[in-house]
Design a protein around this nucleic acid. Structure first.
Lengths: 109, 109
DNA sequence: AATTCATATTGTAATATTGCAATATGGGAA
DNA sequence: TTCCCATATTGCAATATTACAATATGAATT
């Protein structure tokens, strides 16, 4: 059906899945990496960095914004995108809960 | 188009995106969490844990297997799924390269 | 006011994903 | 062999995603 069932899962799982999903596209991951390594907020520089058309990038940006990974501020003609550091810290914690396996658990295969 | 453009991105980015994408579904994330916290390999126990039909879970399992997150071993009647610890360590490293922002970079907004 | 530049939105077409019923497959038990 | 049990695969149908052209918007510049 193309529709993702979310009932029956803990909200922590569905929340984390949304973040992973947002990061699960080369363009969006490249945008995140670019923003994480930039000293200043970048605007249309992103368009020059990513090999996709401007409308497509705009849509990816709004998707990252939707899950709270980034933040956009209008500055005159330009829009300034950057990682929402506060939210990022929370998300990183969320991600690590799934990324890091329990050390005290030994698997039999 | 529904098609994801991968040309023009570093392979490190597209590789990581595939992993994130695989984790970007509640069912798959729940499976990973379950496997990470189990002392033994689980087989059809997963079907009892996830509120989805067996064929759907089977498909999610094969998707996780495709990106190397898990491993399946046939044991008589059952199939034993568990996290591929070696590959997981590599993937964790890959994920952290994108998850952890540079500390020496200060953002202006 | 007219133009330009940066970005967002909308429309549309192609493709991918998801979910389940139905069905296969293959091992072990009877 | 026949019957179950566990799992995989296939075949849809519904929906989501992706990409881009065209267009809108809105600020600054002329």
């Amino acid at each position: 059906m193309g529709i993702t069932k979310t009932e029956g899962f803990p909200s922590k799982v569905t929340d984390a899945a949304l973040v992973f999903k947002a990061l699960g596209h080369p363009a969006r991951l490249a945008i995140m990496e670019y923003l994480a390594n930039s000293t200043s907020c970048i605007c249309n520089d992103i368009v020059d960095q990513i090999p996709l058309a401007q409308p497509t990038i705009s849509r990816h940006l709004s998707e990252l914004k939707k899950v709270g990974l980034i933040q956009g501020t209008i500055e005159g003609k330009n829009t300034c995108y950057c990682i929402d550091q506060k939210r990022w810290a929370e998300l990183k914690k969320l991600i690590n809960e799934f990324c890091i396996p329990q050390n005290n658990v030994t698997q039999s295969c």
